[in-house]
Write a protein that binds this DNA or RNA. Structure first.
Lengths: 185, 185
DNA sequence: AACAGGTGTTTTACTCGTGAAATAAACTCC
DNA sequence: GGAGTTTATTTCACGAGTAAAACACCTGTT
């Protein structure tokens, strides 16, 4: 199959895959050592995890140049894309991180002059966080760079397949999120 | 998390009909605030990162029951699936983590009696690590549970689409891994 | 008005991973 | 057969995240 140049289309549970990616190799090892195991889920979950790890590493490059970690950028991005102030609690939900982590990040970002906080006049427990001009400029400057970089990283795949992949991931994610919300209820 | 990570706060009433997953909503926010940006990569990279986060959370459940973290299980799994001893360096490469992390994990797993080490007779720098019987039994006991759990998590998608998703992820991963090696050279 | 309970945020104590230096042993090549 | 280099592994100092407790404030009830 590698020799014929075709990519494995039906790489189902029983197919002998071309060497391909490292996950395929791992799955092959498991099947050799513990035959009869249903290794199907590995081919999706293992690959997602590995892709995420590699992408994160790759993506870090443009951000690091600006002295930002990815979680920090996510926080700034949440403020930028919603277009209004957010409370620490909302930021935690928005960036899927713990409240404590947000507190720490806000402290640093405030010190760097990228965000500002003000107290709520009615409820003195809550704070409102907004981007400073410097913060907004930073996000606006980085984002196109970031997206261009990501485009380059994905450029090995042609357009239609990228769309197909995005659609399938969207379907999976929608279901995972539904399932998670269900567990939360 | 990614630039596209997060949940929309003010998504307009009634948008949930076509909302899809959270990443789609985030992308919509970006497009509203900064039109003209090519948000294509977010729909893949953002979703992969978010899926990875959710899956990791979900996957942790069966492992935690056994008192193992995922990186620890990966280490044990590498020993189990290769079927032979590995050096710390090989384990680091195999589990995609740093040497220092492997050293720490080995220390803990050794104390728990799950792995053993012996020195190489020829080259006294290198160590060889292998599973103890208890370690092997633990992995063999957990793995089917783990795979069953993962199958359940993915059960919202039907077979053909799962295969298609696995194939596309394999293609992407293969390219990312190639690209990474290229960048390293 | 005062208290009980709930909510938003921060603090605390801890774990874990990382990069860089340290250690130690093996090659190389003159 | 040493001096210098490379390779394998560990140690160290530190940063970042987490869960749980602490804190501060609000709200409903009586």
């Amino acid at each position: 199959m590698t020799a014929s140049g075709g990519r494995p289309v039906h790489e189902g549970a029983g197919a002998d895959a071309a060497a391909g990616d490292t996950v395929a190799a791992v799955v092959r090892q498991w099947r050799a050592v513990r035959p009869g195991l249903d290794t199907g889920p590995m081919e999706i979950i293992g690959r997602i995890n590995r892709c995420a790890a590699l992408l994160q590493q790759a993506e870090d490059a443009p951000l690091r140049r600006a002295g930002l970690s990815r979680p920090e950028f996510d926080l700034l991005g949440a403020l930028r894309r919603t277009g209004h102030e957010l409370t620490p609690g909302e930021l935690a939900r928005e960036t899927f991180s713990s409240g404590a982590a947000v507190t720490k990040r806000l402290k640093q970002l405030t010190e760097r002059g990228l965000v500002e906080r003000r107290g709520d006049t009615r409820d003195r427990r809550v704070a409102h966080v907004r981007l400073t001009d410097a913060g907004r400029d930073l996000v606006d400057g980085i984002l196109p760079e970031q997206l261009a970089y990501e485009t380059a990283v994905l450029s090995g795949m042609d357009g239609p397949r990228r769309d197909e992949l995005a659609a399938l991931l969207g379907e999976l994610l929608g279901q995972l999120e539904g399932r998670l919300d269900a567990l939360r209820a």
